[in-house]
Design a protein around this nucleic acid. Structure first.
Lengths: 176, 176
DNA sequence: ATAATACTGGGCGAGATGTCCAGCGTAATC
DNA sequence: GATTACGCTGGACATCTCGCCCAGTATTAT
């Protein structure tokens, strides 16, 4: 199991700096490309003992590098093929309330507070361009949101990826 | 296995519209919250036969609703605690080349082409604010990128989430 | 040189997995 | 109304993986 003896990583916003070596990176790549293979098959592919793979996986999870192996759901397949990014400008002091409001909108997939004129950046989805308008209306219909700006995503040439980052981290570490 | 008899979903950018019922939504929620439980335990929790859970999982994956169960890697834990969003304005006709260039930068986690003055929206990470400058330099050092604008993510009050969307889809379907 | 750590390769039992099946209820079709 | 199709049930089965253990060895740091 993941939660047996290891302590949770000290998450202090940036203090976390883990040592990921080349084998870890290969492990991450392997499980990213073929999640279903299991520890046994992975040890064969990587040419290391099963116990090693098991230990590495445990460590990666204990260190927080690997958050988990949850299902990756495709919003488009759920009937929400339209993606958009909206920046919201918030009136001073209304941040907390706005957050709570945004959390209630299911089509809002994630939200960041950011620097710049827009205070919040939201990723939203909709079932159509027409529906997108409804979603935005629902999103913005709240006291404290001053101004909004929306970008509709046309294409996603580079979908979310992290393996190359893990490999970069491993290489950076190897080079000292 | 996932790839046995089912045909791959007809991915035609938006044509995909799957039927996700309430049990599917509960399944997705369950596996999202506790990915390690397995089919057996899931059937107990949901109060349905094991075969049903197995069939549902197969169908969800075959339909593309669930892409897979790959590891969820945390860039911060890898040593990249700083997240930023950059919009790039591209000179006409240089899109393809720019894409290829962007793909080579490991700190670039995802990229969308979007409407508006910025043509591309990039999500990037860095090991520090100072490093962010280097990353952006590397990103932008390419012929065809006219102008850029960067927002640094300060906080992430609503991390990427989809279960509530699946539940909304299930409810929408139930209501006809 | 010595200690600590990590990997190896093996063994162990418990449990889950993938795959069958017959029976049955519901819903759609004729 | 009768028939068909479909999905769920609950049970079976052999196989395999899992999590855990261990002693021996190699590698690294002290």
């Amino acid at each position: 199991m993941l939660d047996k003896l290891h302590r949770l990583p000290t998450i202090a916003e940036g203090i976390t700096r883990m040592a990921v070596d080349e084998l870890d990176a290969r492990l991450i790549r392997l499980f990213t490309e073929e999640p279903r293979i299991g520890v046994m098959e992975a040890s064969r592919r990587l040419g290391v003992a099963r116990g090693t793979v098991q230990a590495r996986l445990d460590r990666l999870q204990a260190d927080g590098v690997v958050r988990g192996f949850g299902p990756q759901v495709d919003p488009a397949a759920l009937g929400y093929p339209v993606t958009a990014f909206a920046t919201l400008e918030i009136r001073q002091g209304r941040g907390r309330d706005v957050r709570a409001h945004l959390a209630t909108v299911p089509e809002l997939l994630e939200m960041h507070t950011v620097t710049g004129s827009g205070d919040m950046l939201c990723r939203i989805v909709a079932s159509s361009n027409a529906d997108l308008q409804h979603v935005i209306d629902r999103l913005v219909d709240f006291d404290g949101i001053v101004r909004t700006s929306t970008m509709i995503a046309l294409e996603n040439p580079i979908p979310l990826r992290v393996v190359q980052l893990a490999e970069a981290a491993a290489q950076a570490r190897a080079e000292g």
